[in-house]
Nucleic acid binder design. Sequence first.
DNA 1: CAGTGGTCTAGACCACATC
DNA 2: ATGTGGTCTAGACCACTGA
Lengths: 271, 271
Amino acid sequence: MPQRGGHHRRMKGRSAETGKAQAATVRASVTLPKSSPLYRQVKESLIHRVLSGEWKPGELLPSEQALAAEYGLSQGTVRKAVSEMSAEGLVNRRAGRGTFVTSHSGDYRPSSFNPIYQNSGKRIAEDESIYLAATQMRPDKRVVEGLQIGRNDRVTEIIRLRRCDKRTAVVERSYLPEELCPNIHALILKEQPHSMYVLLEKAYNLLIMRVEERVRARLATEWEAMHLGIEPNTPVLEVERTAFSLGGERVEWRLMVCETGDYFYFNKNDS
Amino acid sequence: MPQRGGHHRRMKGRSAETGKAQAATVRASVTLPKSSPLYRQVKESLIHRVLSGEWKPGELLPSEQALAAEYGLSQGTVRKAVSEMSAEGLVNRRAGRGTFVTSHSGDYRPSSFNPIYQNSGKRIAEDESIYLAATQMRPDKRVVEGLQIGRNDRVTEIIRLRRCDKRTAVVERSYLPEELCPNIHALILKEQPHSMYVLLEKAYNLLIMRVEERVRARLATEWEAMHLGIEPNTPVLEVERTAFSLGGERVEWRLMVCETGDYFYFNKNDS
DNA sequence: CAGTGGTCTAGACCACATC
DNA sequence: ATGTGGTCTAGACCACTGA
């Protein structure tokens, strides 16, 4: 790892000194990973601590003061680390309360990952999901590709319908690697959770932070048409999603199918 | 406008004083708009100055020092303002060089707004656009809705094909309000620009910052099928886009149609 | 009330780009 | 050599929350 930023300082146990920024004299060896800006090292450290389960989704982080003391840095540096995490949605800050690890459940994470809307503008939520199946199986070619796993690894297939206003809006098939989510089929069948991503947090400490979606048009199969209440060979959207955890693992590969007379896929882009 | 943050201070001509943060005594009246944090006021001010054309896309802003002096604030406060603008993509900062107003042309704005990819992973660029028409007309119902204009306002319709590897990948129809982009049809026909958004910057100082897209599946019309080299009634993606300028105006409503045997619509979501 | 995050300042030093 | 943005510090005051 090349040195960047030229700070070369340890993050713990700084000598009192004058309090001014010190020259590039390497004084004492490094206590924490990498080099590059200190606030980034702090950020990486905090992320690892979240991944390790030290603070679980929805829980409170130590205050900036406490973290600054712990790392032996100024509050401003810790603040910048936490600010980046907040900007990336990993954490929510609330003045007067503290900083919380993001969670798909409860109060925060408002918009979530539901890209399909009714023409009326109403978003298709997960409220009225109907689970049709949850079974362990061998992955087919698309699933192997989407999850980047071995052909002989096992996955869990979860099939559900998303209903809205007493109509089936979306037919959905999810595939999760058995290695990351052992026995999730049993949990699904027992709990019939409203949100899969909340279940992944609670049962496996997997926090979904990012998804990639590929959208295509094709004709509905007979099976899909039956569930969606449309004629076979009606054109439908096929949304293919890969979901990544905070740790960067591919946790889910999903296929969503919906008809687009009454629904559409929506994307707001700031790039 | 309710007061927030309790700072109540003018942004110009601060008295020298001790240099420490001052109490809430309102000393002299406000010189700049709104209240709320100073760095936000600075940001708003800078945005207005960009909108006014004081600095055009691609041009250099004054240094943080210079801006701090001009507004009578510390560099840190100006820095926070510029940082937000940078995070929102309004501006690019480069160490050693300075801060530049974002532009769709030239070096920066790498990923732009092209959501359609070949199955190979290659992005459909604007390089090989073929313009079929650019005419002034009355908007139909969808255009009125998309641009939120009056039924009697005039718009310019621009039809083009996007080619990639010697094949037509996308058929595209754009509609721009004549009021915002007078006589753009003449410019289009004369310059046949690679990028419409670069043209909008240069000719009308309209910087496209944000788009909303609605995606649906339907069957190709005969006209579309002809251009795309497919059979009529093949399922295709219809991507409907509204483009917003920095000022928040609806500048373009666009319809993109592509076949999805060889192409797909891609979306990366961090929400 | 004490503690939290949010704003603001002033000043130091750094890597980098340009001349 | 000069000037730019980038990092880091130390300390002040603020508004908000909850006990």
